[in-house]
Amino acid sequence: MEREEIVFVLHGLNETQTNRHIYFVFILILYLFTMFINVTLICAIVLEKMLHDPMYLFLCNLCVNGIIGASSFYPKILYDILVDSHVITYIGCLTQIFFIYFYVYCECTNLTVMAYDRYVAICKPLHYHCIMTIRKVWTLILLTCFFSLLEVTIGIVLTARLTLCNVDIDKFYCSNWAVVKLSCVDTSLNNLAAYIVILTHFSQTIFILISYVKIIKVSICSQTGRRKFMQTCLPHLITLSNFVISLLFDVMYARYGSNNSLLALRNIMSVEFLVVPPLINPIIYGMNLSQIRNSARKMFNCKVSALS
């Protein structure tokens, strides 16, 4: 069968068909709200010159990435809820994999860069503006996107070369490993590439933890340090913990879990890293950082004044 003729069948949404309209409305509201709060935070940072500091630029990049992650998942599932057959073309599946994995890789690397920024800000405050120049910030952001793009492109190329013997994907969205499992040929190269990627991002997680151990040691010595930690580092830790735990569950379950057990839990956890981080990141940062709250409030007040 030619690859262009392959149509994958997605599984996992059968239980939603009895209340499909309720699920559709709920998920649509969730998607629109996710988009709204991310766009609001991005606009607040872009329009307010006082927020053009490294931490806020990294946060802006996190929200842009959150929009990419949410948009790679929500439109397809909203469509599938309203139809009886849950299928996706070969090209459509690879496209969804591309954007989902780009979001995942970019999120991991961006969180690492944000940890580095907080480490310099708290552990080396006198040298912060010398180390974290605007040029260096944009370089880090561009490198984050470039290496994420490189990783996902390699993964897509390795998957696209495989000959497939089946079209049944045991998830309600496309994932790289779900497609690789359908292969009739040797997938050792895909496994090797996957382990390298996992090791790379695991190393990033270790780097973040080491950074925060040093940050905590410095923070507990002064009231100013503790306040900085609670305001800027705690939201980052919450974001990191949620993302890593949900992603780790999905990776481990996809590779070693049973397809027939705990279907509801598996479905929830398999999309948690696509749904929750883009939703809570702008909320916890927006609520915790007074500069962003003030900028957003000013922006909305200007719009209300213009309308009236």
Rank of each mutant, 00 (worst) to 15 (best):
V113F: 08
M114F: 05
M114W: 03
M114C: 07
A115G: 12
Y116H: 02
Y116C: 01
Y116F: 09
Y116E: 02
D117G: 01
D117S: 04
R118M: 01
R118N: 02
Y119L: 02
Y119G: 00
V120L: 06
V120F: 02
A121T: 02
A121W: 05
C123G: 00
C123T: 03
C123A: 05
C123S: 06
K124Q: 08
K124M: 08
P125H: 08
P125K: 08
P125D: 08
P125V: 06
L126I: 02
L126W: 05
L126P: 00
H127E: 14
H127G: 00
H127L: 14
Y128W: 04
Y128E: 09
Y128F: 14
Y128C: 03
Y128H: 10
H129I: 00
H129N: 10
H129L: 03
H129D: 10
H129M: 04
C130R: 12
M132G: 01
M132D: 00
T133W: 03
T133V: 02
I134G: 03
I134T: 11
I134L: 13
I134V: 07
R135H: 06
R135A: 06
R135T: 08
R135Y: 08
R135K: 12
R135Q: 09
K136D: 00
K136M: 02
V137A: 04
V137H: 01
W138P: 01
W138H: 14
T139H: 11
T139D: 05
T139I: 13
T139L: 14
T139R: 12
T139S: 13
L140C: 13
L140M: 14
L140H: 10
I141P: 06
I141A: 06
I141K: 05
I141R: 07
I141W: 05
L142Y: 03
L142A: 11
L142V: 07
L143H: 09
L143K: 13
L143E: 09
L143Y: 11
L143W: 13
L143D: 04
L143I: 15
T144C: 13
C145E: 03
F146H: 04
F146R: 03
F146A: 13
F147C: 13
F147E: 14
F147I: 15
F147Y: 15
L149T: 12
L149G: 12
L149S: 14
L150Q: 12
L150N: 12
L150W: 12
L150A: 15
E151N: 15
V152Y: 05
T153P: 06
T153A: 15
T153N: 12
T153W: 11
T153R: 09
I154V: 15
I154F: 14
G155H: 06
G155S: 10
G155Q: 11
G155I: 02
I156E: 08
I156Y: 08
V157I: 15
V157P: 04
L158C: 10
L158M: 12
T159I: 11
T159Y: 02
T159P: 02
T159H: 03
T163N: 15
T163K: 15
T163L: 14
T163I: 15
T163E: 15
T163G: 09
L164T: 00
L164Y: 08
